[in-house]
Design a binder for these strands. Structure first.
Lengths: 120, 120
DNA sequence: ATAAACCTTTGAGCACACTCAAGGGTCAAT
DNA sequence: ATTGACCCTTGAGTGTGCTCAAAGGTTTAT
């Protein structure tokens, strides 16, 4: 698959994909003519990157995570440690989300705007 | 409370607080000498802003939300509509988080790194 | 053969959210 | 009266994550 199709599938620009490559998040095989050639795995990885990104992880963090996931030289334990660390972050963020959701739900109930109505 | 104490309480810089003020997210009373003076409500609002921000909302989005929440001229229904819209976003984000958490948990189980181990 | 739709690189520009430096005023303690 | 810890404003600089422009090569269709 060429870069244009991959970009269309993920609804991102080709520039963004090349940008991720420069940052070391993804790589691509090259055809004889120099065009990048992507596999289904690349698409899966890119979807994972976009997902992590929507959740507020920086490209540097995502790069470190995917790099270690692909590094065969790392021990299972090392990979597991990284995964557990990220999971803890995700769980903290989920708690934050629920807290914000609760705040908004509470204000929906008693419409007094945020208890902040007296601030000017 | 002066800006320094507020900053210490939230563990952010005074520059950041003044920056939020320039962006219209918060406001402050002034003392005779020109110093900003903050109330407990300001602290609550600032905590809410930081919470929303950690969750990936932009300052512009947060500003629009808090502005409409404080706007007495808006009808209850209008405020409720805005809250419901934000809640929907939060719920979508929570689903994303759970998806990423599931991916990581699955990889923790079967250690084959992300099913992406075959990418080079 | 020419057009249209792809692809390539390099390098610059942009929006966002700070962050810092400069130059100065305020206030409490010694 | 001086020191130190605050505070003020203005304006410039930084890092992240794109986004675009320029100038050109490739492929497919007519």
């Amino acid at each position: 698959m060429r870069i244009g199709e991959l970009a269309r599938r993920l609804d991102i620009s080709t520039d963004t994909i090349r940008f991720y490559e420069r940052r070391g998040l993804i790589s691509a095989a090259r055809r004889a003519n120099g065009y990048r050639d992507y596999s289904a795995e690349a698409e899966a990885l890119l979807r994972l990157i976009r997902l992590a990104q929507r959740l507020g992880f920086t490209l540097a963090e995502i790069g470190a995570l995917t790099a270690s996931l692909q590094d065969q030289s790392l021990s299972r334990d090392a990979v597991a440690a990284i995964l557990r660390e990220k999971l803890a972050e995700i769980e903290a963020r989920t708690a934050d989300l629920q807290a914000l959701g609760d705040v908004l739900r509470a204000r929906l109930a008693d419409v007094c705007p945020l208890g902040l109505g007296h601030m000017r």
